[in-house]
């Protein structure tokens, strides 16, 4: 991108980020006002629902700021990469465990198909977590109740092939080219627990830094398969 395109892209991103911050701030302001009015009428009123609304809005803002912070570091070439030996399988299991309550609540059938004897690899565990937290989170959020998710990890000659598939909402064909762009959210999603639309942009960026690859196949109302290739070795140092 040339300088003008970069500036336009920056302005567009700022505009979208501001718009996304405004919404949860409006929710917090509104719910605080409702709480105040209700307390004035009845000091014993149960404020739990209002507090939950405020909590959801607060989390959305934090998620947005955290994602923007990572993007800023990625785009300004300033993301430190701490390479150390990691047990890839343990990291994936740890992420899956975090989503266990949601998976149970939605009665999602989660199938794991992991190659045996996966090697210990030298990677940055935090960045690996960001990648797979996003991919698995999307699968869990966009798969309906009683749906299915399959996570496959296959050892190949020089890399891991990871496939995360679901039988959820899928991505409409005419929007698939935008999946890895900033602030993209498909218009068929149920907008309750969705994020800011920055996760896949970050995931692709990180994977490509590692000289890996990410691609997907999706059909609306049938589901999506994300495929990720992670080489066994990356280079040390600041990105």
């Amino acid at each position: 991108m040339n300088k003008n395109e970069n500036e336009l892209e920056f302005i567009k991103s700022m505009r979208l980020a501001m718009h996304q911050l405004r919404a949860p701030l409006t929710i917090i302001k509104g719910n605080l006002s409702l709480m105040k009015d209700e307390l004035a009428k009845n000091s014993k009123i149960d404020l739990k629902e209002y507090l939950e609304e405020i909590g959801i809005a607060n989390e959305k803002m934090l998620d947005l700021i955290n994602a923007l912070s990572i993007i800023l570091k990625l785009e300004s070439n300033d993301l430190p990469v701490n390479v150390q030996p990691i047990d890839f399988l343990s990291i994936i299991e740890e992420i899956i465990n975090k989503f266990e309550p949601k998976i149970k609540k939605k009665k999602i059938n989660l199938e794991k198909d992991f190659s045996k004897n996966l090697p210990i690899i030298n990677y940055d565990s935090d960045l690996i977590k960001i990648i797979f937290q996003n991919i698995i989170s999307n699968a869990v959020n966009y798969t309906p109740e009683n749906g299915k998710i399959k996570i496959k990890i296959q050892k190949q000659k020089n890399d891991f092939l990871i496939e995360v598939s679901d039988n959820g909402l899928g991505i409409p064909e005419n929007q698939q080219s935008k999946v890895f762009t900033k602030f993209f959210r498909a218009d068929n999603i149920i907008k309750e627990n969705d994020g800011a639309g920055l996760g896949l942009y970050i995931v692709k960026f990180l994977i490509e830094i590692f000289n890996g690859k990410i691609w997907f196949k999706s059909e609306q109302n049938k589901g999506t398969v994300f495929s990720i290739l992670i080489p066994f070795k990356i280079q040390k140092g600041t990105v």
């Binding site: 919404a23 929710i27 509104g30 609304e53 809005a57 907008k191």
Partner: peptide, 9 residues
Amino acid sequence: EDPQMRRLF
């Protein structure tokens, strides 16, 4: 499209 906005207003 935002369920929190729908609930608030």
